[in-house]
């Protein structure tokens, strides 16, 4: 976009904003002003004034674009890649990423009570690379937009979720718990047999195509699916292993998962402590 077009857009946006607050009183005024806006010549005298402010305005615009991009990605539960922000949103300003990113975060927190959380990288299957990472958390340059308002504010009377969302979130949490207490990973076959037992067949009215739904969870970053090599799998058929995806790790703290699982048992006091200890053990987490 040329700088003139961009300026015009900024000016046009300011105009639109005015429309928000003023009731148009006579017919034709809207059309009239639209025609004036389209005339380039009326902005010529602004050219010289604008160059000085251009840099900071430009930066501000990129921050706002990044906010919008983050909201749009989150709307379809898609992970947000740093590369995509740089390429699709920042374009010629991609070197200003750190500054723009900080301002974007501040704006997301302020306006919506949300922030971008960087996802932990996939654990490297290659032992050499894992060694190189030296047990440190490897960040992935991908983000999800996370709600940072206190949990009790996520009240169904305030925040609307569709029935589909409730159903798929419910099932997702069941799958995450099953994987969690199975030492954090579970092969394909075992997961499918659990789902069969829960009467979630390959095709159902509620959840549709089961495989497609699992693909969706993988794509959204809630689940991670890895193909095991033939030696480990001890099978000539390809074997896939499911574990928590980076988004689940970012959104669901371990203690919440333990709390969720233990709540099913309705126990209290020392019995609850013992139960939670055994859940941590099943998840092979040292307490």
């Amino acid at each position: 976009m040329s700088s003139r077009a961009r300026r015009q857009r900024i000016l046009r946006d300011e105009d639109d904003e005015d429309d928000e607050y003023t009731q148009p009183s006579t017919s034709g005024t809207q059309r009239e002003s639209k025609r004036i806006r389209q005339e380039d010549s009326s902005y010529n005298e602004l050219d010289s004034q604008l160059t000085a402010e251009q840099t900071s305005q430009d930066l501000e615009r990129k921050v706002n674009d990044t906010v919008r991009y983050a909201l749009a990605c989150e709307h379809r539960k898609q992970v947000i890649r740093k590369d995509d922000i740089a390429r699709k949103v920042l374009t010629d300003r991609s070197r200003s990423f750190p500054a723009i990113f900080d301002k974007t975060q501040a704006k997301l927190r302020h306006l919506f009570g949300m922030e971008l959380t960087e996802l932990v990288s996939k654990e490297k299957s290659n032992p050499a690379k894992r060694a190189a990472a030296n047990g440190k958390v490897v960040l992935s340059k991908t983000y999800v937009l996370r709600n940072i308002l206190p949990e009790e504010q996520n009240d169904p009377q305030i925040i609307h979720h569709t029935d589909d969302e409730y159903q798929s979130t419910g099932l997702l949490y069941v799958i995450l718990s099953l994987i969690f207490v199975n030492e954090q990973s579970m092969n394909d076959e075992l997961l499918m047999s659990h789902l069969n037992r829960l009467r979630i067949p390959e095709e159902s009215e509620t959840f549709g195509d089961r495989a497609r739904m699992l693909d969706g969870f993988v794509k959204q970053g809630y689940l991670q699916r890895q193909k095991l090599n033939a030696e480990v799998a001890q099978s000539d058929q390809p074997v896939f292993q499911y574990s928590w995806g980076p988004r689940a790790k970012a959104e669901v703290p371990e203690q919440n998962m333990v709390g969720l699982i233990s709540s099913v048992y309705h126990v209290q006091g020392s019995e609850l402590d013992r139960l939670q200890d055994s859940i941590y053990k099943a998840a092979s987490i040292d307490t």
Binding site: L71, H110, G113, L149, H161
Partner: peptide, 9 residues
């Protein structure tokens, strides 16, 4: 902020 989250949903 919370009202905006509500309107987004």
């Amino acid at each position: 902020r919370l009202f905006m989250q509500s309107m987004l949903s």
